[in-house]
Design a binder for these strands. Structure first.
Lengths: 252, 252
DNA sequence: CTTGAAGCTGCCGCAGCGGCAGCTTCTACG
DNA sequence: CGTAGAAGCTGCCGCTGCGGCAGCTTCAAG
């Protein structure tokens, strides 16, 4: 007893095209091929097709299915690995959905306030997108870079987001000072810088030398610089100057 | 001030290849192209790139991003739609992961019991894979088909799975009776069929005529038939014969 | 013998690039 | 001023899992 391709398609619910595809990639060759080139399937192939469809429905890729059917890998191992992937992907989407809904809320709020914000929120500038590279500027202080990496790896996505948001808010306030014409060593600016320094010190104490290295990074680290410049032209240099003035005045 | 492609790549963290791709698809053309064909980007492009990367990080597709940047669609609307998709996909993966972990548990159990089961569990045969088509055989009774559709739509994935598993268990017990050589109208077989009939009746009362239609479907509905045959050759006809004998003896 | 259904083999397209190959152009150094 | 090496360019193939053609052949029923 064998069936032509359309019959199998009707029985299984997949299209004939799919069955030809499975033949093409060697996943499910038909039981025999007539002298006319037509494909004929038997019960064994139906059973295999069922296995394939089960695994496919579970989200397993066709190449992995082929390995399972070929008994090159253990099905339990494969499923366990697949389960890990599924959970990881689900968690990723979950975090993504949360971020998107925050973005939506932010946008809605800013529209009510008169659209002072575009979707290009500074907290999502380059440095935010690639947090792993943020500490690259600290390569002169590898021991601290390592610690920072560990610290940021331990933070939850929410904490990371919150941190980015706060840093950005500071950058914007600083840009406002700059736009108002205050020099970098003006009192209100220095007050803000002092606040930043204290926050930095709350994590761990920062020697003057390293603080100055961070100041230099504001203009020299390409991603940082780009982030500052994207908020306001000249902001990177302004931040650096303010930090250097602060160090000269209070960290001497 | 403009930057060559590699510079932008370093600043933004994407590859030059990606930037060329974005140019190719019209998503981010460079500010100018030198007479040598080289691409040069300016601040405006950097800002756009940032927007692009933010949206891309949120999982928005490039074509949708292009529409948002071109202001052809409202960003809030786009994000709301995207959020729905994200949540739906997350839920799908969640259900999938749950199914996979049940499958893993089943496989582990069966291995301890001496591997009486392969991954090709009958509860995942064709009809299980396409539950939406199960009631297609009831097309002669459209009003009932509609009700069944509603009922199955209201069931949770767990309930559906459980139902499939139970039906399959019955099919296997029936196959054992058949393998033992009992005719379809033998007493133990009829007892099983009676149990099935009562279960069916618990959902809603089934007239004899419709019961016989269901019996016919066992051999005539291709997916059902395939499911029975995959468990044991001849099982579809055996089930049908048993049901018909039951109807003749007890529903007359 | 004819006709319509079903079969076949390609090839393009989809999203978002990665990774070549093969050629040209910039930049720095001697 | 010549040259090497880095960086630029334009294609084209590949991935996943098929859908959807086109163009031709073959089957099955009347």
């Amino acid at each position: 007893m064998d069936w032509p391709i359309a019959e199998v398609a009707r029985m299984s619910g997949v299209t004939a095209r799919t069955l030809r595809h499975y033949d093409e990639i060697g996943l499910l060759p038909p039981a025999r091929i007539g002298s006319n080139g037509h494909r004929y399937y038997e019960e064994r192939q139906l059973l295999q097709l069922q296995q394939i469809l089960v695994l496919r429905a579970l989200g397993v890729g066709l190449t992995e299915i082929a390995r399972i059917l070929g008994e090159q890998v253990d099905e339990l191992d494969a499923l366990r690995g697949h389960h890990r992937q599924l959970v990881a992907e689900r968690d990723r989407l979950d975090a993504l959905a949360a971020t998107v809904s925050r973005t939506i809320a932010d946008l809605e709020r800013s529209r009510k306030d008169g659209t002072p914000m575009t979707i290009n929120r500074p907290e999502n500038l380059f440095e935010g997108i690639q947090p792993a590279d943020v500490d690259a500027s600290l390569r002169d202080f590898p021991e601290h870079a390592e610690a920072a990496r560990r610290a940021s790896a331990a933070m939850s996505p929410e904490e990371v987001e919150a941190g980015q948001r706060e840093r950005t808010a500071r950058m914007i306030r600083l840009a406002e000072q700059m736009a108002a014409g205050h020099p970098a060593d003006a009192e209100p600016v220095q007050t803000m810088i002092d606040e930043e320094y204290r926050l930095l010190g709350a994590v761990r104490s920062v020697p003057t030398e390293e603080y100055l290295a961070i100041a230099r990074s504001c203009t020299e680290h390409e991603q940082w610089s780009a982030a500052y410049e994207a908020i306001a032209p000249g902001l990177a240099a302004y931040q650096r100057a303010a930090m250097e003035a602060y160090a000269a005045a209070r960290l001497a």
